[in-house]
Amino acid sequence: MQKSTIPNKSHPLPPGVYTPVLSLYEPNPTQDIDHEAMYKHAQHLVRGGMHGLVYQGTNGEAALLSREEKIAVLKNIRKAVADLGVPDYPIVAGVSGQSTNESIQLTKDAAEAGASFGLLLPPSFWAKAVTEDVLRGFYRDVADESPIPIVCYNFPGVTSGVDLNSDDLAALATHPNIIGTKLTCGNVGKAIRLTSQFTPAQFSVFGGSSDFLYPTLAAGGVGCVTGMGNVWPKSTARVYDLYVAGELEEARRLQEVVASAEWACKKSLALTKFGAGHFVGKKIGFEDPRTWYPRKPYAPAGEKLQAWTVEVMGVLEVEEARIPDRVFKGKGTNGVNGSK
């Protein structure tokens, strides 16, 4: 297929593995945001080699957070990465609203709070009314007004089945402020149809989880956004690092282990949060399991599923332990993924 001749985007999303970061809560009846826990978790993920962080996506329980909470979280995280010495580290914010008006406001809030990019789901409240014209018009209208570049987020499981197909995404790729897509639909064929038309500089394709990261990269994609990064950031990031270094056999071996561990994340967000609390909570000083609960009305995992999660995710414990932390020598001296 002939490659597109559209211009390269002026601010593309850097390639790599991104974590859609969990929202952590105070262990009190109203489950207020625990900003200290989120600050330390963010720094843990960056030290673990993540190439970027995503906040207020599906794993971040965006639908359960207020506008004010979203702004406060982003400001706190921008401070967390700046304090590590990487002030320009890529932070992506979920900016998904049901109306065009709300989504535009969320992009402005995110930009002012320190986010570099916006991740946008399609509207879905009246799914039958989301025609092709409505869908494409929504993205274009938001992108027209957004002060930050937009990544199209395709996850039919949380949008009443509304699914951005490859024709939709190819049409949206021509917009100068729409820079790529995250395919949580898991459709590698869709990824190939897009990468056959566009270079990453024109329109980047990211997988929506790490269990098909290797196939995504082989298909011409540039990375993934994976909930597994909340638990095992070093191992998930390393699949990408090995692949781009040309160590394909080792990348594939590690991919197989990562895919096995991520099965727990596929079951439910409650299991992702439990796994993160179990394996990461002690490392960052937040061992109270309630910090890692979903926000009500959603319930934490029961004991049987907790035990199963430890077993399934635990296959990466040895891998994670032998990968060193990324070390920072001071502000501006050891950039990450394009940071200065």
Rank of each mutant, 00 (worst) to 15 (best):
G285L: 08
P289M: 12
S260H: 13
L271T: 15
A264T: 08
A261H: 04
F279K: 09
V258W: 05
E262A: 02
K283H: 02
G277I: 11
L269G: 02
A264S: 14
G277Y: 08
K266D: 10
H278E: 05
P289I: 06
A259I: 06
G275F: 12
A261P: 01
C265T: 15
A261L: 02
K266L: 13
C265H: 14
K282T: 13
A276S: 10
K283S: 11
H278N: 01
V258P: 00
C265L: 12
D288M: 08
E262F: 05
G275W: 12
V257Y: 08
S268W: 11
K283T: 07
G277A: 08
I284C: 07
V280A: 10
V257M: 06
K273E: 00
S260G: 09
A270S: 14
V258D: 00
G281N: 04
A270Y: 10
K267P: 04
K267W: 09
P289L: 13
E287G: 00
E287R: 09
G285V: 11
H278I: 11
H278A: 13
S260N: 07
A261N: 02
S268G: 15
K273R: 08
G275E: 02
S268E: 06
G277P: 03
P289K: 12
K283F: 08
K267M: 15
D288H: 06
A261V: 03
C265M: 12
F274T: 07
G281V: 04
T272W: 03
E287C: 10
G285D: 02
A261C: 03
G277D: 02
S268F: 14
A264R: 04
V257F: 10
E262Q: 08
F279S: 12
A261I: 01
P289A: 13
D288R: 04
V280F: 10
K283I: 14
K266G: 13
K266W: 12
L269D: 01
G285H: 02
S268Y: 15
A270I: 15
G275A: 11
E287M: 14
W263G: 14
G281S: 02
A276R: 01
P289V: 13
F286I: 14
K273L: 12
S260Q: 11
P289W: 09
F279C: 02
K273P: 00
G277T: 08
V258H: 01
E287Y: 09
F279I: 11
F279M: 03
W263L: 10
F286M: 10
V258C: 07
V280Q: 00
S260V: 09
A264D: 03
E262S: 10
A264E: 02
A264G: 06
E287L: 08
I284W: 05
D288G: 03
V257H: 07
K267V: 15
A259V: 05
